[in-house]
């Protein structure tokens, strides 16, 4: 009797907590959609086709296209830097580093992953930006700096995820490859990489997701100008930084407010798609 009651109580508690998170997620979705509906209805396709973002003027324009392009561009370029870098670091950790080195590198990366993004933003802004001036680059908040900031921020992430997927491969595979006379290099980059491919891809997608949603660093060092950068030294503005910068003082319930929610909805949908891809990769891995 007592046992059954205890069991029942436990089940209910666990069920309630689990449901709560699902309910919250659903509510967020409903909230985002209902807040962005007014803009989607009355502004319509202008949001996705116009490059002009002038939400506070009398003849307001609500084009998000520049920011959408910038978000993708920034994510693409950063991934281009951080993913190969992360892959190489984790390859080193897996195949070349001895225990001591492994420990040092991993704990440094762990520490780095704990550094708040606002601190990374400040460091980039205060110490790296002035260096650019000595090279006669007058635009000190730009695409290049943002990529550097995001790389510092997401490197620990991509390394630990990739390393884990290497680790999940049976050690026997690596050792047999070595025993059959392959070099460490080819054993790692051909044998292990192939075996761990789904995990690695998954790590990359999660990293892309992380970069896409990063706000603080971008807000601080991107320069926040609503243009599509033509060189590495041009400023830019992403969806996340637009939301962070303008949500603070926007008039509640106004069109401007609603369009910011559309921006949020776009990010949410992108993140959902990426998560879905990552899940289906994991699933195909199991079978």
């Amino acid at each position: 009797m007592y046992r059954e009651l205890k069991y029942l109580l436990n089940t209910i508690t666990i069920f309630a907590v689990a449901t709560l998170s699902i309910v919250i997620l659903t509510l967020i979705f409903i909230f985002m959609i209902s807040e962005s509906l007014p803009a989607l209805k009355s502004v319509g396709s202008e949001i996705f086709t116009s490059f002009n973002w002038y939400p506070t003027y009398d003849d307001a324009e609500y084009g998000l296209l520049t920011m959408i392009v910038d978000s993708f561009l920034l994510t693409f370029l950063t991934s281009l830097v951080v993913i190969p870098l992360g892959y190489i670091v984790s390859a080193y950790l897996y195949a070349y580093a001895n225990l001591r080195e492994k420990e040092i590198v991993r704990s440094v990366l762990d520490l780095l992953s704990g550094v708040p993004s606002v601190v990374i933003g400040s460091v980039v802004l205060i110490y790296i930006a002035p260096v650019l001036i000595t090279f006669e680059i007058w635009s000190t908040e730009n695409l290049l700096l943002t990529i550097i900031g995001l790389t510092i921020l997401s490197l620990p992430y991509v390394v630990s995820l990739t390393y884990e997927s290497f680790e999940s491969v049976d050690k026997v595979l690596f050792e047999s490859a070595l025993a059959l006379g392959s070099s460490r290099f080819s054993a790692l980059f051909i044998v292990i990489t192939r075996a761990a491919l789904p995990g690695i891809l998954n790590a990359f997608i999660l990293t892309v997701n992380r970069i896409m949603g990063e706000t603080m660093v971008v807000l601080m060092v991107s320069g926040n100008a609503n243009i599509i950068p033509k060189s590495l030294f041009d400023p830019l503005r992403t969806l996340t930084s637009a939301i962070a910068s303008e949500m603070g003082e926007v008039e509640l319930g106004s069109l401007h407010y609603s369009v910011l929610f559309v921006a949020g909805l776009i990010l949410l949908i992108i993140s959902l798609i990426l998560t879905w891809i990552s899940k289906s990769i994991q699933r195909s891995w199991k079978h």
Partner: peptide
Amino acid sequence: PTVRMVESTQLEIDSVKNN
């Protein structure tokens, strides 16, 4: 749109000081 929109007055002053 090429104007840089920054979050704080302090950032503006620092940028002008350095640039």
